[in-house]
Amino acid sequence: MWLVGPRRGSLGTGTSGPDLEASHVRTDASQNRARILDAARELYAAKGLDVTMRAVARRAGLGVATLYRHFPDREALVVAAFEHELADCDRLSEEALADPDPWRALRGVVDHVVRAPTGNWAFRAESLDEVKTGEARARAMTNITELVRRAQESGDLRADFSPSDLALLVQASDSLSATSPAAARRLVAYLLQSFSARAAPLPAPGPVSVLGADFG
């Protein structure tokens, strides 16, 4: 005798009918949102924040109408992409803070940011709405400051190093990253050596904005 499973709409343990269709819709929407954010981050890193919504939709392989269903305007997309970028930074910095070697942890974060294809545009995103991105900025800066403090307390990082110097490092390598990633990594390696506690004293830091917060 053939065993026949529950028919569509009948009682059974599987998901069927409207519930299954709704699940597919939610999955598609989630995947589309992720594609949009990935495309936006790539374009912001390569071309800055003036990229059009149409360009983002084209990079994501989606229609403009689909993009607007997720993000009603350009500002909403930029803020969401910024927060997504900082969420990645949060995960990276939390892993680094768990590393028992503070100097290795700090160098690892810097190396990752320089190597990542979308890893540095957030450091240039100074025009974002402070109210909408303030929490993400504060969380990122807390982790960065703690990484710096640990490396200084271990005696590996020079005492006159400022968290704003990380932004200077990223900005210095930024122009090279698009054309020669290898050259950018080499420049960063040179700069990291100068951050060692055994290097010569530095001049006082000048004013610079890191994730929208002013240091100097």
Rank of each mutant, 00 (worst) to 15 (best):
M1I: 14
W2F: 10
L3M: 15
L3K: 11
P6Y: 14
P6G: 12
R8Y: 07
R8S: 15
S10W: 09
G12W: 10
T13G: 05
P18H: 06
P18D: 10
E21Y: 15
A22N: 08
S23Y: 02
S23P: 02
S23E: 15
R26M: 11
R26H: 12
T27E: 13
D28S: 14
D28F: 04
D28L: 12
A29R: 15
N32P: 00
R35G: 09
R35Y: 05
I36Y: 03
I36G: 03
I36C: 06
L37A: 01
L37R: 04
A40S: 13
A40F: 04
E42D: 14
E42N: 11
L43D: 10
A45P: 10
K47Q: 13
K47P: 01
G48F: 06
D50T: 10
D50F: 04
D50Y: 02
V51T: 10
V56I: 12
V56S: 12
A57E: 01
R58C: 03
R59H: 14
A60E: 06
G63R: 04
T66N: 10
H70M: 02
F71D: 04
D73I: 01
R74H: 09
E75K: 06
L77M: 01
A80E: 07
F82T: 13
L92V: 07
E95F: 02
A96F: 00
P100L: 00
D101G: 00
P102G: 05
W103F: 03
L106C: 00
G108K: 04
V109T: 09
V110L: 05
V114Y: 01
R115M: 11
W121I: 06
W121K: 03
R124N: 05
A125K: 08
E126K: 01
S127A: 15
V131Y: 01
E135R: 09
R137Y: 00
R139M: 02
R139T: 06
A151T: 13
A151V: 11
Q152A: 00
S154A: 08
G155L: 00
A159E: 10
S162I: 04
P163A: 00
A167L: 11
L168F: 07
V170M: 15
A172E: 02
D174G: 12
S175F: 09
L176R: 03
S177E: 02
A178T: 15
S180H: 11
A183H: 02
A183D: 13
L192Q: 14
S194V: 06
F195G: 08
S196N: 07
A199Q: 10
P205Y: 12
G206A: 13
P207G: 13
L211H: 04
D214S: 15
F215P: 09
